[in-house]
């Protein structure tokens, strides 16, 4: 029972002593648990909360790399909304998310179902599918550059087979570059999320499949009626995680499309734009911070959406 404001301190101490005698537990000060939490909280505060608060403060200033700024209110935000580069980058980020997330939710699930099969040598395929995850982003980028450049593997094959008459500009056209980067992201994420699904599939009771099979359900029907509902919570988690990483995509575009972010910067995503604005000796820390906050809000919206979907599912 919570002590009421009218209750005297003396009566409260008496009640606590009685409770201690009754339960054998010693009542401590309210802040004792916080003392144990303090080291962890301090780290979070120092390396996550403080930089975040600092970014919010900086986003309201015209600070530059080597010069503290002055308070400019919401000018940086107004500037962002009037900046065509911001809209291009935000559009690309959202497009990236819309295309990549469904692929990363569904394809690894299909892959996980396939590699669960008990056939000889399946371990090799599991490892092979996981290899891109441990490969460095730069190596992955270089491999795909060789595959996709105008005189690369794909174009050479297509030209030899007369499928195309001109090389497809995978890397030199903004839209194609974005698609190429999406392919790389999906390819790299397949193995990672496949492991998530393998864990989830391990929890699906085989008896459900056996019962359905006895009732005459085929593999496809069993997949949609048993596997999918059983791993749905994992699908939501994968969806949320891949949405967050899709909004943070930078490396794939940088390696495939160079430091300008595609021709004319047309394939830049929000993190790419933030880096361009904030980096270098003339970097605009204030504006870059405002863009970071906008990216944070965008991520928050999609995270909340994922949460809402998962709650709806629970109900």
């Amino acid at each position: 029972m919570t002590p009421g404001p009218a209750r005297s301190a003396r009566a409260r101490r008496k009640a606590l002593a009685a409770m201690e005698a009754e339960t054998g537990l010693v009542h401590r000060k309210w802040w004792i648990p916080y003392l144990f939490l303090a080291p962890g909280l301090l780290m979070v505060a120092l390396f996550s909360l403080w930089p975040f608060v600092n970014t919010v403060v900086l986003s309201l200033t015209d600070a530059q790399i080597l010069r503290g700024g002055t308070f400019v209110g919401f000018d940086n935000y107004t500037r962002a909304f009037a900046d065509p580069d911001f809209w291009t980058a935000a559009g690309n980020s959202v497009l990236y998310l819309v295309v990549v997330v469904p692929c990363l939710v569904l394809l690894p699930l299909a892959l996980a179902v396939l590699v669960r099969a008990k056939v000889p040598g399946i371990g090799f395929f599991r490892s092979a599918f996981y290899t891109p995850v441990i490969a460095s982003a730069v190596v992955v980028g270089l491999i795909w550059q060789w595959v996709l450049r105008s005189d690369g593997l794909v174009n050479t094959v297509f030209l030899r087979l007369s499928i195309v008459s001109e090389p497809i500009p995978f890397l030199t056209d903004s839209a194609m570059l974005l698609v190429s980067a999406m392919i790389v992201t999906v390819w790299k994420g397949l193995g990672y999320y496949m492991v998530f699904y393998l864990a989830a599939l391990g929890n699906v009771s085989p008896s459900l499949h056996e019962a359905a099979a006895l009732d005459g359900a085929g593999p496809v029907r069993r997949f949609f009626s048993i596997t999918v509902p059983q791993v749905k919570p994992m699908m939501l988690l994968v969806g949320t995680l891949s949405a967050i990483s899709a909004l943070r995509v930078f490396t794939e575009i940088y390696i495939l499309g160079g430091e300008s972010g595609g021709p004319g910067g047309g394939a830049r995503t929000l993190p790419f734009l933030i880096r361009q604005v904030g980096l270098g000796f003339s970097g605009e820390t204030g504006y870059a911070s405002a863009l970071s906050i906008l990216l944070f809000l965008l991520t928050l919206v999609f995270s909340l959406l994922g949460r809402r979907l998962s709650k709806g599912d629970e109900r």
Partner: peptide, 19 residues
């Protein structure tokens, strides 16, 4: 106190002119 410390420390981001 914690919030105040955060805000005041964060405000340091404004002052670092370096020169």
């Amino acid at each position: 106190l914690v919030a105040g410390t955060f805000l005041s420390v964060s405000a340091c981001g404004l002052g670092g002119s370096g020169a």
